[in-house]
Computed example of a mutant assay.
Amino acid sequence: MPLLKTIALNDYTQLLVWKITETFDDLFKSVALRDVSLARLEGMKSEAHQKGFLGVRRLLESVGYSDFDLYYDDFGKPHLKDGKHISISHSNDFSVIVLSDVNIGADLEILKDKTLKLAPRFMDVSHLQNLNPEDTLMKATVVWGIKESVFKIKNEVGISFKDHIFEDDFNLADRKCGVELRFNNKTERFDIIFEFIENYVFVCAFNSN
């Protein structure tokens, strides 16, 4: 299907969402890929991952870019040749890209019980107290997305979700919160925006001013 939605996260950041309903062949035929991207695609074992990768390229083309405008640094972080900041994520039936004038990190996660089971390994579980089961799962998934998003901004080896990234407590209705990274004897603050798209959680992190 075409671009599902575009959301202005703020005055200088745009979220684009693609819901993947196409077959792999239809997606593959609809985009042009660099040789390095084609090799990367062929190396993916999961068709769902392949379709997510191609969905990202469809999103790029929907806003006037292409795979030829995208490159990755030595740490795997994506960049656009014109200097616009980009973050990419895909999960099952959705691909998303975020374009911004500032450095950002974004993550998309499907709601699944496994995230809640793993919660003690990556977060302060006291932040899940006094919630109904549905909200508990949603909040744990938001927190996982927060930590993924901060990690995508910093992209430094050795960062631990549990030991170095600390989210402020928040309410799901707020759709935003703050988070602190304490790593290598340095403390940094980030602002978080999150949204719910069907049974998925979308999270985006920004450096705090």
Rank of each mutant, 00 (worst) to 15 (best):
M1I: 12
K5P: 00
A8H: 11
D11V: 01
D11H: 13
Y12C: 11
Y12F: 06
T13W: 04
Q14C: 03
Q14N: 07
W18V: 08
T21A: 14
E22I: 05
E22A: 04
E22G: 01
T23R: 06
T23E: 14
F24N: 05
D25A: 15
F28V: 00
S30D: 13
L33I: 07
S37N: 03
S37I: 00
A39C: 01
R40L: 05
L41V: 02
L41S: 10
E42M: 09
K45V: 07
S46F: 11
E47D: 11
H49P: 00
K51I: 05
G55H: 07
R57A: 02
R58Y: 13
L60T: 12
S62K: 10
S62L: 03
G64P: 05
Y65F: 14
Y65D: 09
D67Q: 08
F68M: 14
Y71S: 03
Y72Q: 02
D73A: 12
D73Q: 06
F75T: 07
F75Q: 01
G76M: 13
P78Q: 08
H79L: 13
K81N: 02
K81V: 08
D82L: 05
G83Q: 04
I86Q: 06
S87R: 13
I88W: 09
S89C: 03
N92Q: 14
N92T: 07
D93V: 04
F94R: 07
I97G: 00
V98Q: 02
L99G: 08
V102A: 12
G105M: 02
L108I: 14
L108C: 10
E109V: 00
E109D: 01
E109H: 00
L111G: 04
L111K: 05
A119S: 15
R121E: 14
D124Q: 05
V125P: 05
S126H: 15
H127W: 05
L128C: 13
L128I: 07
Q129E: 12
N130G: 01
N132W: 04
N132T: 02
P133A: 09
P133H: 02
P133L: 02
D135T: 06
T136Q: 15
L137V: 11
K139V: 15
A140M: 05
T141N: 07
T141I: 11
T141Y: 11
V142E: 01
V142L: 06
V142K: 08
V142A: 12
W144C: 07
I146P: 10
E148N: 11
E148M: 06
E148I: 13
E148C: 08
K152T: 07
I153L: 14
K154P: 00
V157M: 12
V157T: 12
G158H: 13
I159C: 10
I159K: 08
K162C: 09
I165K: 05
I165C: 09
E167I: 02
E167H: 04
D168Y: 11
D169W: 10
L172I: 14
A173C: 07
V179D: 03
E180Y: 09
L181T: 09
R182S: 15
R182Y: 01
F183W: 12
F183E: 06
N185V: 02
K186L: 13
K186M: 07
T187I: 15
E188W: 03
R189Y: 15
D191C: 01
I193S: 12
F194D: 02
E195W: 07
E195D: 15
F196P: 01
F196L: 14
E198N: 06
V201H: 02
V203L: 05
V203D: 01
C204L: 09
N207Y: 12
S208M: 11
